[in-house]
Design a protein around this nucleic acid. Sequence first.
DNA 1: GTCCAAGATCCTTTTACGTCA
DNA 2: TGTGACGTAAAAGGATCTTGG
Length: 305
Amino acid sequence: MSFHDTSNTGLGLGLGLGLVSFHDQSENCMKSTNDPLREIHKIKKVENPSKCNSTCPSLTLGPPDDDDDDDDEVNNQPPSSKTESYEYFRPHVSSPSAVSSFSNYSSIKRERDQVLWEKEFEVEVEKVPTRVGDVDEDGNPRKKLRLTKEQAAVLEENFREHSTLNPKQKQELAMKLNLRARQVEVWFQNRRARTKLKQTESDCELLKKCCDTLTEENKKLQKELQELKSIQATPMPLYMQIPAATLCICPSCERICGGNNNSDGGNNNNGSSHTTSLLIGSKTHHHSFYKSNKYPFPHSSSAAC
DNA sequence: GTCCAAGATCCTTTTACGTCA
DNA sequence: TGTGACGTAAAAGGATCTTGG
């Protein structure tokens, strides 16, 4: 239902009903059993690092990354050595100072994953940040990065195609942008949240407009009702209650009388038709009174002046 | 077939950093 | 130069679903 439809009903029925459809469809989809994400999930299960072979380490677990995401120059450099490749894929390890700076950094689960990863790959993990971009002048780790315009543009482009990613797409995108899969995932999450927020805001605006329109219309109807009530309550001369088109002036008495009305089937006191009762020159005449369902005046069907 | 734990992703909320007026 | 508002990356926490034992 469009806004127009809603605003023109005068009753406002359906307000909000149609608006429901404005909400993010993908979101609704996600909740359904036949959710495409479930398909995605299946794929993910296949690619689950903890379940698959050793060439597939976890990409999504690990502490916040300070190694490869906050320096754009470095960030856009693909891993060049085996060590860097491991570094690129491994769960994250930062300096102790970095650890202390993140309140939730010591997630048990992620630490465990980190340990498992180290064991599995027998990699000597570095305990200090490896790049200048990881720390500020005071040696404090930086917590977040700013994505480059190019990265944001590519992510945006992908988001337009599909608001969710399967693991393969995520991985490819991460590789392409030289980001971690986790970063891509987070970006998509935030992007979905932004989309939903905007949608909610626009829905809210729409509802406001609908509400204003209906309020205005309600006022008009109330006013009209009030007028009709006052008309009905005020007694007025008979001729004022009779539509002008049905009125005529009696040629003999020169008084206004109602027009002819045959709704009574032509029955009157003398049995003659009202159509001839107002003929000029007629000595005796009958005034025809307007009778209708709308104005049921309690007069007899004919009367002498 | 049912139950349960593990794992993955989602969403919402919160936190904290970067940018800009 | 300092500051507050705003945008946004990142994480926490809870919910839901699938899978394997």
